[in-house]
């Protein structure tokens, strides 16, 4: 028992658990053909939470180790500027329709989620965590924190939204008769962030590139738009 107590108290152990679980779930996801339903992050969260509950470990103890990974989210968010710049150089002549689609999509995503959840009596903390659900977790975690929501709930909802986007997009494209690869990719990036972008690559490289552009644009735009929208809707 003492052996366990010694290692569990060491931040190193939770660092190792996090990275090992993620490598294993990524491998599993590749073996299963990359299905968004068993996204490595979703499966990792499930496994780690079960492990912590079984060993009676608190989230605070876990985070003492995991914070070293969490810290890298800051510089990684800044680094999103690099792929955004690459795409920007290619599409700057068509920036207006892309910006318009991104802004309309981002406002639709946040406003409709807020209104539906509010109509169904969701609590304030839930509302403020659901608002950034269609942007990459890198940005959503920070946005939820700034709005007064729960960063961890936000990151979970972001992942569910990503999986939903990948499932809903193909039938909607069929109904609306959307056949263009760039439109399909960009739409996936706006509605389902990085998971949608990864999915868009299955339509082709161009769809993936437009998905990446959409993810970056939507994330940046949403971070500035949400505080206004939330106060406009009288939430918080």
């Amino acid at each position: 028992m003492e052996f366990w107590t010694f290692f569990a108290a060491k931040p190193l152990m939770w660092l190792i658990v996090t990275i090992t679980t993620f490598i294993a779930t990524s491998w599993l996801n590749r073996r299963l053909g990359g299905t968004p339903l068993l996204h490595p992050v979703l499966v990792s969260l499930f496994l780690i939470i079960v492990f912590l509950l079984l060993t009676g470990t608190s989230y605070e103890t876990y985070f003492e180790g995991a914070q070293f990974i969490h810290f890298l989210l800051g510089p990684a968010t800044v680094a999103l500027a690099v792929p955004l710049f690459d795409h920007f150089e290619r599409v700057k002549k068509l920036l207006l329709p892309l910006l318009l689609a991104c802004m309309a999509g981002a406002v639709t995503a946040a406003a409709s989620a807020l209104l539906v959840a509010q109509a169904l009596d969701a609590s304030l903390g839930t509302l403020l965590s659901i608002a950034p659900k269609s942007v990459t977790s890198a940005i959503a975690i920070g946005v939820a924190e700034k709005l007064g929501g729960y960063p961890s709930l936000a990151s979970g909802l972001v992942l569910i939204t990503g999986a939903l986007g990948c499932m809903l997009a193909p039938p909607i494209y069929r109904i609306l008769n959307i056949t263009d690869e760039a439109v399909k990719g960009f739409t996936l990036g706006v509605s389902a962030h990085g998971m949608g972008t990864a999915f868009a690559f299955e339509y082709g490289l161009m769809a993936g590139a437009f998905g990446g552009l959409a993810m970056g644009m939507t994330g940046a735009f949403t971070a500035f738009m949400l505080p206004l929208l939330v106060s406009l809707l009288g939430i918080g």
């Binding site: 329709p97 892309l98 318009l100 689609a101 991104c102 309309a104 999509g105 639709t108 995503a109 946040a110 409709s112 989620a113 807020l114 539906v116 959840a117 169904l120 009596d121 969701a122 839930t126 659901i130 659900k133 269609s134 909802l157 569910i160 939204t161 939903l164 986007g165 809903l168 997009a169 909607i172 494209y173 609306l176 959307i178 263009d180 439109v183 399909k184 960009f186 739409t187 996936l188 706006v190 509605s191 389902a192």
Partner: peptide
């Protein structure tokens, strides 16, 4: 509330974005 909001808003977002860009 969460699940309903996520499903409705994700579908709406796809429709709005695709129709504007198409």
């Amino acid at each position: 509330a969460i699940l309903t909001a996520l499903i409705i808003s994700t579908a709406l977002t796809i429709v709005v974005t695709a129709l504007i860009l198409n």
